[in-house]
Design a protein around this nucleic acid. Structure first.
Lengths: 212, 212
DNA sequence: CTACTGTGTTTCCAGTGTCTACATTGACGT
DNA sequence: ACGTCAATGTAGACACTGGAAACACAGTAG
């Protein structure tokens, strides 16, 4: 039972080298495996093999760590959206592009429930503009998509940000309900499909010569 | 204002009488004022004037208390929706009824951010069917509304629960974004309006003689 | 060589959730 | 009237947490 010791070999350098990212990595794993509530700074320190006060040099606060996780989550979400939208070149029909982005978002959210809960949490610490910035960056993808749809005549005119918020919020809401087990996970794909369909029908220009 | 004291007179009966609801009340206040994270069983016990282990008789767990709060939240939400839908008799036009319900929901959510975060939290403790039941009851109001719309020909046919989920999720998502300060609170009403408008346009029967 | 700065360590403290043993009730059957 | 019993509240202990302060160890610039 000596395996718990803090690395009996004195080989470990006094300075870890990049504790900060090691902390973020470990925290992200712990977040996925046990949820944000069970995330303890001391646990992370133990797992990495540093003293319990070491993390404090990199995160002033437990909340600061959580905020950093949320920020990283938004960055990843932004990348996921970008990838989904880039795929297949820029020349797929608009509805397909919307669908791709939404499906990618929905899967990201249901595969990282605790992370999303963190991202949507109301209580980031006061000066957390990093989180806000990262969120805005990810969100910009949606706004751009809407703008594109409007430019191509696939959507009505209107504040593209407002329309984007509604689309984003719908997916966010559906995945939240799935993640909170309020609705069954198997319904996700069906729900997303009809949500996209309704969105497109509700947001397209009125009574164009409908035959297409 | 002598009610705040821990009752120095030894008159306080050994048994509080209804500690459980006193705890829920205090917890709800604390939730609103300081968020779920800062909610401590010992604090509540102190505030009420009982020993620190007393709450354990009524809530096995801290999480059990939080679950009970979430459950109560869903009950209140259900009442809010019911009231919004009952108002003005059953004979207002369908779009107005939808709008009323949605606005009521949105306001409830933005006025009780911490509560809603709890309600949408993924991690209720394993055997928390009470929460699920309360949520289903509140949610039933929405499903009923959709069903009504379909019966009156104001909405397409289709699984009313699925359509209801989408509507509910949209509002839930918007308010979450407002509560997390991702978007400004002032945009709420505008967003809700266009969300409802888009929902109705996207979900109504196709190409009825449109002139109305 | 020295001072300084960035990181990690140790030691301490208050506070928390949870557990266990015990005390105080009121209700109920006899 | 009385003993029993379940419900409820109390007291104390434990392990753990986040946070603060003082200190130790390097690399680096002067």
């Amino acid at each position: 039972m000596l395996g718990r010791m803090p690395d009996p070999s004195p080989q470990r350098p006094y300075h870890h080298g990049n504790l900060r990212s090691a902390l973020l990595d470990a925290a992200e794993r712990g977040l996925r495996e046990r949820g944000a509530g069970q995330l303890s700074l001391r646990d992370l320190a133990r797992e990495i093999g540093v003293s319990h006060a070491a993390p404090r040099r990199h995160f002033a606060d437990r909340q600061a760590l959580l905020d950093a996780l949320a920020e990283a989550g938004f960055v990843r979400l932004g990348a996921v959206l970008r990838a989904a939208l880039a795929e297949g070149g820029g020349e797929r029909p608009f509805p397909s592009r919307v669908r791709d982005a939404v499906v990618a978002f929905a899967h990201f959210a249901t595969e990282n429930p605790a992370l999303c809960e963190l991202m949507n949490s109301g209580k980031h610490r006061p000066g957390a503009d990093d989180v806000a910035r990262a969120a805005a960056a990810a969100f910009g993808q949606v706004t751009d998509l809407i703008r594109e749809g409007q430019a191509h005549g696939a959507l009505q005119e209107g504040d593209p940000e407002e329309v984007g918020i509604i689309l984003y919020a719908t997916v966010q809401g559906i995945t939240t309900m799935v993640n909170s087990r309020m609705i069954d996970a198997e319904r996700l794909d069906g729900l997303v499909d009809t949500a996209v369909a309704q969105f497109l029908r509700g947001a397209r220009p009125p009574s164009e010569p409908s035959g297409r």
